[in-house]
């Protein structure tokens, strides 16, 4: 089997994979990083979103071998080593941006990608950006609130939908 090597959350990671091994499988099964969730496995739900060389991608719709040499960031690398949540995670907790939590890793990684390019997104921009991240619990409202808060914006003005 071919070998693949990449950097995951700043640390070198490598393993033997098949050509058909998905990046999500490599992260979960080889690396044991099960925070990257596989919901639909059809690239629709976004629970598996990770960053590859800084871009948000669906890890279930990319082969591990395509990430050869790449810098991969997953939900496990978001909090500080002592467990202190980052601003987005803390805002999700504070604003109750999750219920069952299954979609949350993807939501947090998508939110991080959005805020990197657009540090003060409007409510409409946040909703538009989360088009590929499905949540079946929250109705999205508190997720949007959390991302507004994480970007240092006032969340009081967001109307419930």
């Amino acid at each position: 089997m071919p070998q693949v090597s990449m950097t995951v959350n700043g640390k070198p990671a490598s393993g033997n994979v098949e050509g058909r091994t998905l990046l999500s499988s490599f992260l979960r099964d080889t690396m044991g990083l099960t925070g990257t969730h596989v919901g639909c496995d059809t690239s629709q739900c976004g629970a598996c979103v990770v960053h590859v060389d800084g871009d948000a991608v669906k890890a279930c719709t990319m082969f591990a071998l395509e990430a050869e040499g790449a810098e991969v960031a997953t939900i496990e690398g978001q909090a500080a080593p002592d467990g202190t949540l980052n601003a987005i995670q803390a805002a999700f907790q504070e604003h109750h941006g999750l219920q069952c939590g299954f979609c949350t890793p993807g939501m947090v990684m998508s939110a991080a990608a959005l805020l990197k390019d657009n540090p003060k997104p409007s409510e409409a921009e946040i909703r538009d950006y989360l088009e590929g991240n499905l949540c079946r619990c929250t109705g999205y409202h508190n997720i949007v609130k959390a991302i507004m808060a994480a970007s240092g914006q006032n969340v009081g003005a967001i109307a419930a939908e």
Binding site: A56, K58, T61, S110, Y129, G132
Partner: peptide, 9 residues
């Protein structure tokens, strides 16, 4: 096209 993660690939 698609969503942001799809557009990145």
């Amino acid at each position: 096209i698609g969503d942001p993660a799809v557009r990145n690939r």
